[in-house]
Design a protein around this nucleic acid. Sequence first.
DNA 1: CTGGCGTCGGTGATAAAGTCACAGAGCAAG
DNA 2: CTTGCTCTGTGACTTTATCACCGACGCCAG
Lengths: 209, 209
Amino acid sequence: MARHSILQTLPEPLRSQALERIQFMTFPAGQVLFTAGERCHGLPLVLSGSVKVQMTGVSGHSIVLYRMGADDICTLSIGCLMTGRGYRAEAVVEEEAEAAMIPRGLFDRLLEQSPEFRLGIMESYGRRLDDLMLLVEEVAFRRMDERLAEWLAARAAQGTIAITHQELAIELGTAREVVSRLLKELERRGQVRLSRGRIDVTGELSGLD
Amino acid sequence: MARHSILQTLPEPLRSQALERIQFMTFPAGQVLFTAGERCHGLPLVLSGSVKVQMTGVSGHSIVLYRMGADDICTLSIGCLMTGRGYRAEAVVEEEAEAAMIPRGLFDRLLEQSPEFRLGIMESYGRRLDDLMLLVEEVAFRRMDERLAEWLAARAAQGTIAITHQELAIELGTAREVVSRLLKELERRGQVRLSRGRIDVTGELSGLD
DNA sequence: CTGGCGTCGGTGATAAAGTCACAGAGCAAG
DNA sequence: CTTGCTCTGTGACTTTATCACCGACGCCAG
């Protein structure tokens, strides 16, 4: 039952007591876990699947902030959980995901009673801050063609990716036209083949030029 | 002695015990609190003054991530403190600052024994995440002239700011030339007057055009 | 099977921002 | 006054963002 490493570190009888109060849930692909402005009613521990967290600016543009996968903790929820403020971002399930929801009272009690739980939370927290700082640097200073090539290479060194240019633009926080043009350039160089809603990676993407 | 709200919430005798192990320090303007890669040996609570946190990308460009002032907590340190990884950013004192350094062992003990301390830490964490998410949006989607005007307006609705174009470029995460040109444009419109290392705000900056 | 419709992708024109290179202005110390 | 350093201004060019529009593709109803 305790299919998350932070739960496995809990000593008995704390673990059993915790498991009684934790709600296990399954979310289908496409499901919205939370949206901007919404209140938070528990800390989600991701057990399986994949969830992307993105935000939309006043301009209406969106950008993907990070992803959560198996054994991740939705640290973004902690702030909302403890202060009662609403979320600033939204979370969308990409691959069917299972999660364990820890209610507020239990979260506080686990923090109190388990040094390992504290460590796990703080570790996750540090990683999330690092991710966001890296993203700031990336958005502020790196070239879009490099970022696009890296994104593609990370998904499929060789092979097919099912994604529209618009979705890819949101991943990178840019405009659809920019993605289209950069992809077209990659196609001219023979590094990808393009079709509607699909990108086939055919050549080396990184370390070229 | 307990000149930080999170210390004031501690009940006796926990507070007295904590104060024995906390080191109070004063840092002059210009002092570097920590640099990228450095290990962290305690959680700083800022009592007074102002500290800016900035990071430098592989490209060599820098950007200011956020500032800490009186009653802030250097949440960035928590991740490093708990995991032993090095800092990714650096912190520089802007106005002479006093800080209370909480060693790792004490931090964990306070988390365990004080619900108010836990709440304070998590609140601070949430605020920091929000700040960074806002920064991502700002850098990714907003126009530089707007951001520059807002930055100036926030510092001095009317009056003088002592800063070089290069420093201002780091505040906004852009290039010095871009700042110089935008400032020149503002000067042409009569909204600022420029001199070496100084900007005089003379007109309305926000809400125009 | 075909015609209509909504989504997706391509592209030109133009504006904003970033990069590179360099020159001149302001300031301080000798 | 000269020297040397930092700070600022600017031209030329590249990259990215924005706006406007059109054609291609896929799907579904008739």
